[in-house]
Design a protein around this nucleic acid. Structure first.
Lengths: 331, 331
DNA sequence: CTGTTAGCGCTTTCAT
DNA sequence: ATGAAAGCGCTAACAG
């Protein structure tokens, strides 16, 4: 293995100089161009690459973050799109990404205990208990997403469920819809409450009574639920559903010949399960994995450098243009 | 930060002893039980955890592998199920996983160049060019899957496409089917050739002429292709399709009232896009991500310890029981 | 502008 | 069975 000393000898300078040249610190004052060149050439000739291990030990940093996926949410494409974004953001900055899965009852991954990372992006089904375990490591961390069991004081990058829900209702209300059905697979009390609040707020804005009876939570079989609610409530003119219901929804539309958007307007909540064509077709509220990943990485970097105290960032969102929402006349 | 020296002082021994106790090497001869206990207690009292960075530098190992996903295959669930398996296998062994994305035209991720990992699991769309770049790092690696552009001499864990295809055809032929349609999105010449070979072999086994005209490659829109082929070739009694065609297929069945398996039998090739219910329902040839991940990790460990030379492992597979294949009478 | 000298925390001969 | 000492490759004061 070729070390900094080999390069130093080859270039006829001290190893310190080599280190300095190769690290081009503080706007590179204080090293003659000639020396720089000598060193660079020597390094190239020897095909030198630094040893991360040595640097880590010396600096006490690792230049790595950990993407910690809590609980077993592997089927959810959302987390993979998040993972991808995070990887890209880190890689842009020359940083590495350790991927780890963490189940509440198990041991924390060794890499975390052994300080092999400078920071942790915690995501998935994040509970209070998990958070407090992670706190025990003293590694800076932020939660990417909403806490699963309870609001909790942590550094967090999330999208505000209440706001999101309100945004979608308001959008439809603005287009003259009033009888709006909402389907979600949320089952956690905390999340459901947020949905209800968002719904109420939107209707209040328009001085209307919220249609809480059209709000279905814990939906497991979207096809059937859509069927039921539409046949029970003929007055419905708009539908809000999660993007992973898309194939069930498409089946329904095709089979029943439901006219979109003439008969019913549709908004997709999140877009991580949509393909590109669907993303253009459906009006949707983006899931925001891109923004969350970007913002999360940025914030965690600040945090890990001690440049930031508490933090709670909310990703703002906007309904995307699509072809599934139609303006209707207010009765 | 509490170091090995702190523990040593606390326990009243030398740091060397602490290191030895905590590493319990070579069946632990040569350390008195008393000392062991003192050290362990001291370590516990001080809440000592080793520093991975220091250990890495000292041993020249990192206890980390890299999962390198080549090209942009993010929508393919297959790779994520692979990632999950690999993470679990490594974590079992106290090892870490660095996740990196690599696009052929870009620089190799810094973590690889800087020897931050002991080995690399290369997957995704792996080309010869990528392989030779990786070779340049001198880090042991294995390819998880089939080379995309050309057969190539590398350490590899893969499933044999030809065998797989043959297995599926043989299975159906064994049940009396002869007019078997095969749909795949493969577009690479190399892969298509393997499919053709597998098909031919299976028919040969039964002394029949291969139905190559029922073999459709580069399928982008499965719904339409299924429709076309079934209406053009009324004689078809069985269908082999990839599992990510499942939703298009289900749509088709529902809409057209196609009778499965009475009218047409179906085998799914791979199962990574199926949910649990679908996995029981469809006869399928497993994609093998589980076995590939397990085998890959095991082999790479051997490889990285210099205990193995060339290696090319093929994952054997079997059609799973399901409810979509029916025995028919041979004409 | 450049070199000398200490570490970073751990593992590993080599003595004892 | 245990300890002393060297060294892994790099960064970072501190001198000059």
């Amino acid at each position: 293995m070729v070390t900094i000393y080999d390069v130093a000898k080859e270039a006829g300078v001290s190893h310190t100089t080599v280190s300095r040249v190769l690290n081009r610190k503080k706007s590179g004052i204080s090293i003659s161009e000639e020396t720089r060149k000598k060193v660079r050439e020597a390094a190239a000739r020897l095909n030198y690459t630094p040893s991360r291990a040595a640097r880590n030990l010396s600096t006490g940093q690792t230049n790595c973050f950990c993407f910690l996926l809590c609980d077993r949410l592997f089927t959810n494409l959302y987390y993979y799109s998040l993972l991808k974004v995070v990887e890209e953001e880190l890689s842009k900055r020359g940083m590495g990404l350790i991927f780890a899965i963490y189940k509440e009852d198990e041991e924390l991954p060794p890499m975390l205990k052994e300080r092999a990372v400078d920071g942790i992006l915690v995501t998935g089904r994040v509970t209070q208990k998990i958070v407090s375990t992670i706190k025990g490591t003293n590694i800076p961390f932020i939660v990417l997403g909403t806490m699963a069991d309870k609001e909790y004081e942590v550094n967090q990058v999330q999208s505000d469920v209440k706001d999101d829900v309100m945004t979608m209702y308001s959008y439809l209300l603005g287009y003259g819809h009033q009888e709006i059905a909402y389907l979600t697979d949320y089952k956690e009390e905390l999340l459901i409450q947020k949905v209800v609040d968002g719904c109420k707020l939107a209707y209040e804005q328009y001085n209307l009574k919220p249609r809480l009876h059209l709000l279905k939570t814990n939906v497991r079989d979207p096809y059937t639920v859509i069927d039921e609610i539409l046949s029970e409530h003929k007055e419905i003119t708009a539908l809000i559903i999660q993007s992973h219901f898309v194939s069930a929804f498409s089946n329904f539309v095709r089979e029943r010949g439901l006219d979109i958007p003439d008969k019913v307007s549709v908004i997709m909540c999140n877009d991580e399960s949509l393909d590109n064509a669907q993303r253009t077709y459906f009006n949707h509220l983006p899931g925001g994995s891109k923004e969350m990943g970007e913002e999360g990485v940025k914030s965690l970097i600040e945090l890990s450098r001690g440049r930031m105290g508490k933090m709670n960032i909310t990703i703002p969102k906007q309904i995307s243009q699509g072809h599934t929402v139609k303006k209707i006349l207010v009765k």
